[in-house]
Write a protein that binds this DNA or RNA. Structure first.
Length: 278
DNA sequence: ACGCCCGCCTGTAAGC
DNA sequence: TGCTTACAGGCGGGCG
């Protein structure tokens, strides 16, 4: 599912709704959601009785502080949801983890495709336990960067532009939707070589990156036709209505009215305008 | 060392 | 109508 705007929307609501609560009980079903622990009990016992004190985001990862010593890491994969629900509300299919708070209410992890995961790791060994978070590139929303520094990031990279945007080690948080939207706004083709951009194009790309993400965040992210992304309250986002190219195959380009194209690129769909993106 | 493709899963929709 | 195939917001591993 979720890319940076969706995860950040969730983080902000979690900060208000869940942070500060004390965990009473944790239930885990199935074996896929909790993969990095020797067994489920270990995961459960490190959470029960502890308080969630903060929630941060790194790229598409959510990281809660749990008590003084531990971190709870959540990655939603393609179809993961975190939902805040009342204790008595019916369990929806594919609910893998249910955290019940002493103050009442539950945080539930629902994930049909099971690419997402949750785990607890001590703060002390976080860096070695979760190297992928340490290796994340600059955060497309949180990290302030001049466009000249951004240009430095692109320099000498022969890879294709879209691959670079989606490489979490270079820019953290972008996936298939926002890469396409950003490239359209910047007027650049996905298969352009990253180091072929003029100064002006670098500036356009950086501006498109910031603007697109800010705008998507303002609209609480994108919920596509399959409804997989839902916020903490189960509500869809609204940014899908603003998509300029993603999922718009055959529709008139907003800028030049020629039909939006869809291509298979690196195994996934890419949407773009042949006229406006060069 | 890199770029690309596949598999991991389940659900849905399109195609035959 | 019903079976089969393709495809979906991510990511890591393995291949050439």
């Amino acid at each position: 599912m979720p890319e940076l705007p969706e995860v950040e929307t969730l983080r902000r609501d979690l900060d208000r709704e869940v942070v500060g609560r004390k965990i009473k009980t944790v239930e885990v079903s199935g074996n896929r959601a909790i993969r990095r622990h020797r067994n489920k009990r270990q995961f459960i016992s490190r959470l029960e009785g502890q308080k969630l004190t903060t929630v941060r985001r790194r790229g598409k990862y959510l990281v809660f502080e749990v008590g003084d010593e531990d971190l709870l890491v959540v990655h939603l994969g393609m179809s993961g949801q975190l939902l805040k629900l009342g204790t008595k509300e019916p369990k929806i299919p594919h609910t893998h983890v249910v955290i019940t708070f002493t103050q009442g209410g539950q945080l539930r992890f629902v994930d049909p495709r099971t690419f997402g995961e949750m785990f607890v790791t001590p703060k002390e060994t976080f860096a070695s336990d979760v190297p992928e978070i340490g290796e994340l590139g600059f955060d497309a929303l949180d990290d302030v960067m001049s466009w000249t520094d951004f240009g430095e990031l692109l320099r000498g990279r022969k890879g294709k532009l879209k691959a670079l945007l989606m490489d979490q080690k270079i820019i953290a948080g972008l996936g298939n939707i926002y890469s396409d939207e950003i490239l359209f706004t910047a007027g650049l083709r996905h298969e352009r070589s990253a180091d072929s951009l003029s100064t002006q194009e670098v500036r356009r790309l950086y501006r498109a990156l910031s603007e697109t993400l800010q705008d998507a965040l303002k609209h609480r992210g994108s919920t596509l036709g399959d409804e997989q992304y839902r916020d903490l309250f189960g509500e869809p986002g609204e940014y899908q209505n603003e998509h300029k190219v993603y999922g718009q195959e055959g529709e008139a380009c907003r800028r030049c009215r020629s039909p939006v194209k869809r291509a298979k690129w690196q195994g996934r769909s890419t949407f773009f305008c042949e006229q406006c993106q060069v």
